[in-house]
């Protein structure tokens, strides 16, 4: 009875992690795109008298994509900001209690992200149907719906990832980001 459920969760976990990593890679390329676009505008405006009229909107657009495409991977890697000194301490004396608290926190987090997804979905539908855009007509405009869709999908994926952490909690939770600058100056 339990085994097929566990297998299912494992498969779901693999799939969700894969999607998170993929979205993260796309978000990463957008960071590079951001550097290039802003520099293009600076050069085109300063030296060729021809500013890129959509620079402002494109920057806004890419910020949303960077944040929401990468958020699931942040969740997956336990890098969402938290203060877990108490939990770490507790797990040395009362490991089972600490584990229960961890699972509860992830469950609550899943619930919150589900609320976010629930809040954004109607926005996406409305923007998609009305073809609503931002920016100034004749200057530069971009549609709203991809933004709302990105937020919705991101929140949905985060919900699943948190949920997986409830069912299959990670054995090791790092208090801070340690992998940073791993190879520099070495």
């Amino acid at each position: 009875m339990l085994r097929p459920i566990l297998t299912g969760v494992r498969a779901l976990s693999r799939l969700a992690n894969g999607v998170a990593i993929g979205a993260n890679a796309v978000g990463t390329l957008i960071v590079l795109g951001l550097v290039l676009i802003v520099n293009y505008d600076v050069v085109a405006r300063g030296f060729f008298n021809a500013p890129f009229r959509g620079a402002y909107e494109v920057v806004q657009f890419s910020m949303v994509l960077i944040v929401f495409l990468q958020l699931p991977d942040v969740v997956r890697m336990n890098r969402l900001t938290r203060s877990d000194g108490f939990l770490t301490l507790l797990s040395t004396t009362r490991p089972r209690l600490a584990d229960t608290i961890r699972r509860t926190i992830n469950l609550v987090s899943a619930a919150f992200m589900a609320l976010v997804a629930y809040a954004i979905w109607p926005e996406f539908v409305e923007m998609y149907e009305t073809k609503d855009f931002f920016g100034v007509p004749g200057i530069f405009t971009a549609p709203w719906w991809p933004i709302k869709l990105a937020i919705y999908l991101s929140a949905f994926l985060c919900t699943i990832l948190f949920f997986i952490k409830v069912v299959r909690p990670d054995q090791k939770i790092e208090p801070v980001r340690l992998d940073e600058h791993a190879e520099e100056n070495s």
């Binding site: 008298n49 021809a50 500013p51 402002y56 200057i139």
Partner: peptide, 25 residues
């Protein structure tokens, strides 16, 4: 003509039609 002109929103379009004038947001 040929100058950079700061503006915002719709008024940047007032410059269309002036030779080489570029609106900067």
């Amino acid at each position: 003509e040929g100058k950079k002109v700061a503006g915002a929103g719709m008024n940047l379009r007032y410059l269309e039609g002036i030779d080489g004038a570029a609106g900067v947001r």
